[in-house]
Design a protein around this nucleic acid. Structure first.
Lengths: 205, 205
DNA sequence: GTCTATACAAGGATAGAC
DNA sequence: GTCTATCCTTGTATAGAC
């Protein structure tokens, strides 16, 4: 493993454990038994570490998320389970989401692009779920916008909320809590077969 | 206005404008044409300013929120409109929500108490809405928990999301966006009369 | 009780020696 | 590629003037 990779790995661990703002470059260096300037050599600014971690997350998501030609309701729920698992591994980014988006230009640029295509992707999937008879045909374009809106809010802030309000929950319990919430909202727009898939997915968690 | 009040008022303005982390004590002092130590006299730590702003917000909410004996669906939506308006005035607190909750013990204690009773309050209101025939009788206790969960997520993070994703929206537009989301979710659990009230509330925004 | 001046520690960032 | 020295900013503590 290169020094650069060693720094990235340990930074992610410490940031996840104690928060980005609470882990200094000096501390990270001491932990790795290297000198602060050495970290600066690979990452001139602290921001740069986070830009790289952000890239890792989006690559992880790309690798995890399989293209769905004919998505079922189960596929949809399963995809969110995977995305949430990935988010958890990079939870430090979500816990400092707003401040990073405001201060870290590159990170926010990268995130903006990825997020835009991700939302577009989900719009398509929802439309396909309607066509395939998993979501009700009464679901309008406007409803889909609201559903995407809802998904986007949950995806961005579930980690923040669970860190603040559900500290005692394990990773799995926390993820299940929010998958249940998504299932709850979506089942009201699902067909009978769609509901069935949601329920069996949730009861299998 | 006392010095203490002047400090609090201007701090809120600057924190809202540029973020809590980006406004230093020295800068606030310069802006007010007083010396940093003078701020320290009233607020030994920066945290203490935020504790006080947190109290102001919860007092504002208490003052705004009218006790509802026989709440209608319209009352429910209207209450959220008021709460969101109040949140916006103290948006800096929500933009740094997670880090404050983790680092500011008093603020998080105070918030914990208020939030607990607020959620309890909303559970009661939802139950009453069922009894009064605005929400469907098929709504179970478990459904109510999910709805409260949903409301809690939106209430805490709508400002964060709109700051990051909907920068161009005005205060009113942003609030309307999230009221629409709440209406969207709730209308699926509402009776005919309940739906009517939600729709007429939303179209009157 | 109110306000000022000053000092200190910690964190990010930079230039340059080896 | 690695490390040292140094600077600047921020939060905070203290001593003392009015």
């Amino acid at each position: 493993m290169t020094t650069r990779e060693i720094i990235l790995n340990r930074a992610l661990e410490l940031f996840n454990l104690r928060g980005i703002e609470n882990v200094g470059i000096r501390e990270l260096a001491t932990d790795l038994n290297i000198r602060p300037g050495n970290i600066t050599y690979y990452f001139p600014k602290k921001e740069d570490i986070l830009v790289e971690l952000g890239k890792q997350l989006s690559e992880l998501n790309s690798a995890t998320i399989v293209k769905l030609e004919n998505p079922s309701m189960t596929d949809f729920m399963e995809r969110y389970r995977q995305v949430f698992n990935n988010h958890y591994e990079y939870r430090c980014l979500f816990l400092s989401f707003v401040s990073q988006m405001q201060q870290n230009k590159k990170l926010s640029e990268n995130y903006g692009k990825v997020e835009k295509s991700r939302l577009e992707d989900f719009r398509k999937i929802l439309n396909k779920l309607v066509e395939a008879g998993y979501l009700d045909t009464s679901v309008t374009e406007d409803d889909i916008e609201q559903l995407v809106s809802f998904l986007s809010l949950v995806a961005r802030f579930w980690i923040s909320e669970s860190t603040v309000s559900y500290k005692k929950l394990s990773k799995k319990q926390a993820i299940n809590h929010y998958l249940n919430l998504i299932g709850f909202v979506f089942s009201k727009h699902a067909t009978i077969i769609g509901k069935k898939q949601i329920n069996s997915f949730l009861s299998g968690l």
